[in-house]
């Protein structure tokens, strides 16, 4: 049982990590959810060896499985649930803004990279600057239509 659970946790971790490294936002979201599930499975493994059982009373503690890891996992699931919802909202917003499900490039980063490696001349600095300006323009336009969609409490 322990081996199966460990193998399952490892498999889920592996899938999660793989998905996390993709460029599509939806895959990243699923990958993160999988990572959290892997961690949860892993905690359940910890329930096998007994800590101090949480119950107070005369019952022989040997009859109980340690409930604390399950409480941990439940709490962690609550948190994952909230954060995943938020991430979905965020990637939806990203899709609305860019019509694209991919991780966006950082223009500022590219500009700094441009400055430090003057040998590469495929992207003209002026072009990047223009792209940045267009970006600011677009931001200004979008500024007003921000809806009350992405706010939630944990």
């Amino acid at each position: 049982m322990t081996v199966i659970l460990a193998a399952a946790a490892a498999f889920v971790f592996a899938c999660g990590t793989y998905l996390l490294l993709q460029r599509e936002l939806t895959r990243i979201v699923i990958g993160l959810a999988l990572l959290a599930h892997g961690a949860n499975l892993f905690i359940l493994l910890g329930a096998g060896r007994r800590g101090n059982p949480t119950f107070i009373g005369d019952d022989p503690s040997a009859d109980y499985l340690d409930p604390l890891p399950q409480a941990f996992v439940l709490t962690a699931i609550v948190i994952t649930f909230g954060v995943t919802t938020f991430l979905l909202g965020l990637s939806y917003r990203s899709w609305v803004l860019t019509r694209d499900d991919e991780v966006q490039d950082d223009l500022e980063d590219r500009r700094v990279a441009k400055r430090t490696t003057p040998t590469e001349v495929e992207v003209d600095l002026a072009e990047v600057g223009a792209a940045l300006d267009a970006e600011h323009q677009r931001e200004a336009e979008h500024h007003n239509e921000a809806g009350p969609d992405e706010w939630e409490t944990p």
Partner: peptide, 15 residues
């Protein structure tokens, strides 16, 4: 909060 484009991009990294 505000959902500007640069925020969504940076927010994604952070999250």
């Amino acid at each position: 909060l505000g959902g500007r484009r640069s925020q969504v991009r940076a927010g994604m990294t952070y999250v």
